[in-house]
């Protein structure tokens, strides 16, 4: 009797705790889902008085759509850069014996968190200035790509290490050149890894505020994350209607990309090696 009461109380306590935790994470998402459709959005999540007026207003804002396009450009550019270079570097690091290879990787990994971090703001700005890359999207792509590459190389090297060498040796005996081996054999085999890297770098760039804020001057080149920062009413208050609607549009591409990639690459090839 006593025991079952204790057990019931424990269960209740556990579910209460879980519900509170769930609410903590759900409320912002509910706000994101409801506020864009609300006639008078506040910072509280509530059932909206339904309207699409906010979207119309957003589409009329010249900044909004252009900034999403800029975000896409930066993300795609950085993604392509990171995938291509990290794949080549990871393959080489995985296959060529290099003295101090592991130490090199760990040091790069350590430094990468500094490169795109706040600590390097001033040197980065100086460097970009000397190279004439201030207010150039290329500058942002290079800086972000440089910051992401070490981690990408690190992750991909693991994928490469996991693929048996005999695939490549087999292709070599048939006369394939190193680039052919990479294209025909290695890339298809590590495609899930490449997809992971691509999604991850796109998401990283999509959400990055600091670097484009630092390196881009003209509003027409700024990505969504920076432009959102400028959504104020004439009174200096944050324009909640605009911010909420824009946030929804801003998060959609990343969600869609994730769903697409996980349905497309959420599997691995297997079976060519008899174990």
């Amino acid at each position: 009797m006593n025991e079952s009461v204790t057990r019931a109380l424990t269960t209740i306590a556990r579910y209460t705790a879980l519900s509170l935790l769930l609410a903590f994470f759900t409320l912002p998402l509910l706000w994101l889902a409801f506020a864009p459709f609300d006639r008078t959005p506040t910072i509280a999540a509530s059932l909206p008085r339904f309207t699409l007026d906010n979207f119309r207003q957003l589409l009329e804002n010249p900044q909004a759509l252009r900034s999403l396009r800029n975000s896409a450009l930066l993300a795609a550019g950085t993604g392509a850069l990171v995938v291509v270079f990290s794949a080549l570097a990871a393959y080489a690091l995985s296959r060529v014996r290099l003295p101090g290879r592991d130490a090199l990787l760990y040091v790069l990994l350590l430094l990468s968190s500094i490169v795109t971090g706040t600590a390097a703001m001033v040197p980065l700005f100086n460097l970009a200035f000397e190279l004439g890359l201030i207010d150039e999207q290329l500058g942002v792509i290079l800086v972000l790509g440089g910051g992401l590459l070490p981690s990408a190389v690190f992750i991909l090297k693991d994928f490469m290490d996991g693929t048996p060498r005999s695939y490549e040796e087999s292709a070599r005996v048939f006369g394939a050149s190193p680039l052919q081996i990479v294209r025909h054999v290695v890339v298809p085999l590590v495609r899930p890894g490449l997809a992971t890297i691509a999604v991850w770098s796109v998401a990283q760039v999509w959400g990055n505020f600091l670097i484009p804020f630092l390196l881009l001057r003209s509003p027409e080149k700024s990505p969504a994350a920076v432009v959102m920062y400028t959504f104020y009413t004439e009174g200096g208050q944050p324009d909640l209607a605009l911010i909420a609607t824009f946030s929804l549009l801003y998060s959609l591409p990343v969600v869609l990309m994730f769903l697409f990639v996980s349905s497309r690459y959420g599997f691995r090839f297997h079976g060519g090696i008899k174990s």
Binding site: P164, S170, A171, G175, S177, H184, P188, F269, G272, I273
Partner: peptide, 27 residues
């Protein structure tokens, strides 16, 4: 290796798992 005019069968066969049998043989 590619210019020695030899063909090798590996212990684990090393068939390319992402290619069909046709593409493997034709590689």
């Amino acid at each position: 290796p590619g210019r020695r005019d030899v063909a090798m069968v590996f212990q684990d066969y090393a068939l390319f798992p992402h290619m069909t049998v046709r593409d493997n043989i034709g590689y």
